[in-house]
């Protein structure tokens, strides 16, 4: 079964919490990523998330599989929003259960960190001044490390 999903509609953690319930679990750790009203010193009014779903679901599942291999956890699941989000909206949820809390916390942290850095999801911020930008894609010439471009 898949342990990673995209949602084009708003959702609540409670919609998915039952997926990680397990009789062996003594602890549940979760992470919620919310849309904040500022980034890098600028006022943010809304976000857009775009995802490459076919590869994103595969890579998200690989991340969760790695968490199962690294930590003694019972269940884990991650859901990421796509589309237009307002300030305060839930952007991503990770839920992990384990017999003991250390593994649940560690696996939850692992999953959100790896999802952010590996899963093909892009975030466009819309600013209070009316302009917008794709996060991590706005490179000034001085920022580009030598040899980073494709051949």
């Amino acid at each position: 079964m898949s342990h990673f999903a995209f949602s084009r509609e708003a959702f609540a953690p409670e919609d998915f919490r039952a997926l990680v319930a397990d009789p062996v679990a003594g602890g549940y750790a979760s992470f919620e990523g919310w849309v904040r009203n500022h980034n890098a010193g600028r006022g943010v009014v809304r976000l857009e998330y775009e995802g490459y779903a076919a590869l994103g679901i595969k890579e998200g599942n690989r991340v969760v599989a790695e968490a199962f291999a690294r930590f003694p956890i019972a269940r884990a699941h991650c859901v990421h929003r796509l589309g237009v989000l307002d300030i305060g909206d839930l952007a991503v949820w990770v839920g992990v259960t384990a017999a003991h809390r250390d593994a649940a916390f560690a696996a939850c942290r692992y999953i959100i960190d790896e999802v952010k850095s590996r899963v093909p999801i892009w975030k466009k911020e819309h600013y209070a001044e009316g302009d917008s930008g794709w996060i991590n894609c706005e490179v000034r010439p001085a920022d580009a490390p030598a040899g980073s471009a494709p051949p």
Binding site: G33, Y52, L55, E59, V92, V119, P120, W122, K123, N136
Partner: peptide, 24 residues
């Protein structure tokens, strides 16, 4: 599936270029 830049291109391939990601 992720591939190296040296991966061969075959008839019918579906190719996606992936700029820096920003989930979460």
């Amino acid at each position: 599936e992720f591939r190296d830049w040296t991966a061969p291109l075959k008839d019918g391939d579906f190719v996606v270029f992936i700029p820096p990601v920003a989930g979460g």
